[in-house]
């Protein structure tokens, strides 16, 4: 379990995160959403021990990430948005680096790489951006770590690779692992992320499972416009509208509409989804 308590961080005098608190439970794939500049990447780097909180505290299974104790690092991995094109073949890179993570499996790495259709004998500094990203994703998933933080993992992937990514994430992650995936491409990950975390600079607006969201909000895909809707958007052949669920009727959560509804009605949705 990861506990974030009253966390604040700033770059010089520019505050990025202020008094953020939340809990991330084992065995979940969190979708971390937020507008540009709210601090999604900063939060991921704080969770992985790459930065030190200005105030507040992060605790990951009893470890403080910034202490960077080897036994903590051995059970986590952070995949940044931009990755380094090292002068190794994919196969050698995984063999040399993977040795530091006790649960790393070279066979699993090659298996995932094959699914992504990347040649293991290819030098990484000769790969395209998409191939390089797929190599790192394969490596991250083959590590067998409990805490995996992925920053915009589908950026630069082609359409078949996005589907392969979803398949690989559900197939190769541990039962008890915590995945936090920061993304703007919510449609790419709609079927795998649950719960949803929507971050604002000064607050966590939403940290709820899809079930909890659909019990409080109703997603209407009909043709009739509801003036009381928290958010509505015209689509070809109808509307997508987000309403307060007053009838306990179930509906399929549309993450993009949810995100827009939250941003138009921050306090209301926050209070509605408060646990």
């Amino acid at each position: 379990m990861i506990t974030i308590d009253n966390l604040s961080f700033s770059y010089g005098s520019v505050p990025v995160l202020e008094h953020i608190s939340m809990t991330l439970q084992d065995g979940r794939i969190y979708g971390l959403l937020g507008e540009n500049g709210v601090g999604k990447t900063t939060l991921l780097t704080l969770l992985s021990g790459l930065k030190k909180p200005r105030t507040g505290r992060i605790e990951t299974d009893g470890f403080l990430p910034y202490d960077r104790r080897p036994s903590f690092l051995q059970d986590q991995y952070y995949l940044p948005d931009e990755v380094a094109p090292v002068n190794y073949t994919a196969e050698r890179f995984a063999r040399v680096w993977g040795t530091f993570w006790p649960r790393f499996s070279q066979e699993k790495f090659l298996e995932i790489l094959k699914e992504f259709e990347v040649e293991p004998g290819q030098k990484m500094n000769k790969m395209s951006a998409g191939q390089l990203k797929k190599t790192y994703i394969s490596f991250a998933l083959a590590l067998g770590v409990k805490h995996l933080f992925l920053d915009e993992p589908t950026n630069g992937l082609d359409i078949p690779s996005k589907a392969q990514f979803r398949k690989a994430v559900t197939r190769y992650t541990r039962e008890d692992s915590i995945l936090v995936i920061s993304t703007h491409q919510v449609r790419d990950l709609e079927n795998i992320i649950d719960p949803i975390v929507i971050l604002d600079r000064r607050d966590v607006l939403v940290n709820a499972t899809l079930e909890e969201i659909s019990s409080k909000l109703y997603f209407d895909y009909g043709t009739q416009l509801h003036p009381e809707a928290l958010y509505s958007e015209q689509l070809p052949g109808g509307f997508i509208q987000v309403l307060v669920n007053t009838t306990d009727e179930e509906s399929k959560v549309n993450i993009e509409a949810l995100f827009n509804a939250v941003h138009k009605n921050k306090e209301l949705v926050k209070n509605l989804l408060k646990k």
């Binding site: 021990g49 960077r68 080897p70 690092l73 051995q74 991995y77 940044p80 380094a84 680096w97 530091f100």
Partner: peptide, 9 residues
């Protein structure tokens, strides 16, 4: 980033 998170003290 990759070097910092490499599990060694």
């Amino acid at each position: 980033t990759a070097w910092i998170i490499l599990p060694a003290s």
